Simulated assay, not measured.
Amino acid sequence: MMAGLRERKKEQTRRRISEVALRLFDERGYDAVTVNEVAEAAGVAKVTLFTYFPSKECLVLDAVKDDTAAIVAGREAGQSPFDALREHYRGMARQGTGEVDVEGMITRVRVISASPALLAGVHQTNMGQRYELATALAEAMPGHGLAPQIMAAQVTAAVTTLQEVFFHRLSMGVPLEEAGRLLGEEVELAFDLLEHGFSSIKGEKS
């Protein structure tokens, strides 16, 4: 019980630091706010902040990471890497109608969009996740040459597009429930296209 309480307190501290950082970055700009200022506003020591977030960039970007390689590596016995990824993003789409901090999500996107450094960080994060996914796919399906790398690139591009459209809808005032419903449909579309190509589109001529 004590261990569970400690974990909850750690999560509360982590969330508070992240929320304070986003508020300051949104108000004054990412480059204008120092880590010291974030720590002071969150009521923690600088060393404590770095325990949760190893760098200033992590204050914003940790929440946008999605370990697709771990999804492939940790899939159920008999489940294909592709099916594991599809099921993961189905689950994320279902969460879109749950208790999501829409305002916080929009603020994070706004902060990232306004900072060249953070945009570059997002690109670097996506590239790193893509290479890790390619490695995991290569281990799951050895002897397929370049296929794992191409598959990883396609999955990463599709997921990035789904996220961008979802965030755009929320920023335009689309209700969360509706945005989540559309995301669920588009996850299926994206993975149908990944699995079957253009032939999965009704009316597409071969």
Rank of each mutant, 00 (worst) to 15 (best):
A70R: 12
N126M: 14
V20C: 07
P116V: 05
V20M: 06
M127D: 05
G128T: 06
Q95T: 07
P148C: 00
A21G: 14
R130H: 02
D66A: 13
G145A: 04
R28H: 11
G197T: 05
K65E: 04
V100Q: 11
V102G: 04
G145H: 08
C58I: 00
R94M: 09
S80Q: 04
K65P: 00
G91N: 09
L49Y: 09
G98S: 07
S199K: 13
R23T: 12
G197F: 07
R15V: 07
G91S: 11
K205C: 05
V35M: 13
V100K: 06
S115K: 05
P81N: 02
G173N: 06
E178A: 15
L85H: 02
N126S: 14
R75S: 02
E57P: 13
E99I: 02
E178D: 13
R86A: 11
L189F: 13
F198P: 02
L146D: 09
A117K: 15
E186I: 12
E185T: 05
V38S: 05
R94S: 12
V38A: 07
I71V: 12
T107M: 10
S55W: 11
V47P: 11
Q124H: 14
I201M: 15
E99S: 09
G43S: 10
F53D: 01
G121T: 06
Y30V: 10
F198D: 10
E37V: 06
